[in-house]
Amino acid sequence: MDIMHHLLTAQFMEPLLLTLKVAGLATLAATILGIAMAYVLARWRFPGRDVVDAVCTLPMVMPPTVLGYYLLVLIGRRGFLGVWLKDVFGISLVFTWQGAAIAATVVAFPLVFKSARAALEGVGRQFEDAARTLGQGELAVFLRVSLPLALRGVMAGTMLAFARALGEFGATLMVAGNLPGRTQTLSLAVYSAVQAGDDGLANALVIVISLVCVAILVGTSRLLQSQY
């Protein structure tokens, strides 16, 4: 088989492992940030709440290249955060896999945020109140009641976020470039393989990505089936 032939080559394995690292880290970061923001917006009333919600959702609707541009303005060599990072820590994120992870985090964040917010808002107020009357502080209420009751929705969002991070292309290209072995993730590798006319490699990459995405979608819909 032509595809099997490609599976263990460096051209295939390098992007695969890099993608798993980038997408895994991005999903972790997006999950923590997404749950935190979702909790703030689901529980607290404050002026400008709608605006914050819109900004948090923005990465879902904006073209990834635009996001990548914003990220460059922020963390690029001349971006104000980028200059600060360079001066204080001597770090440059542009053209690194860490930069790719940040790009993937931003793109994946709204998927966790949206699902987590809906899930947390769906948790009956009375359960949290009951925990408070039983002597629990706010952290305990969140960790023992709100989060477990919202867990399925949050996990569904996390899986979608992982799928999205896995396939990230535009923002990653802008921030991290397409350097084989360093920042070339699966979707970038597909692009390069097609450009180079290497159809066999492109086929192998596309099939693996497709299978993973189908598995994630099936898992997500299973998770969202009702509980209790």
Partner: peptide
Amino acid sequence: LPTRRRGLGYLFQDYALFPH
């Protein structure tokens, strides 16, 4: 005083038992 330190037992109308 926050709810947790009032030392009051509360029986909710729909009981609010933790389903999990």
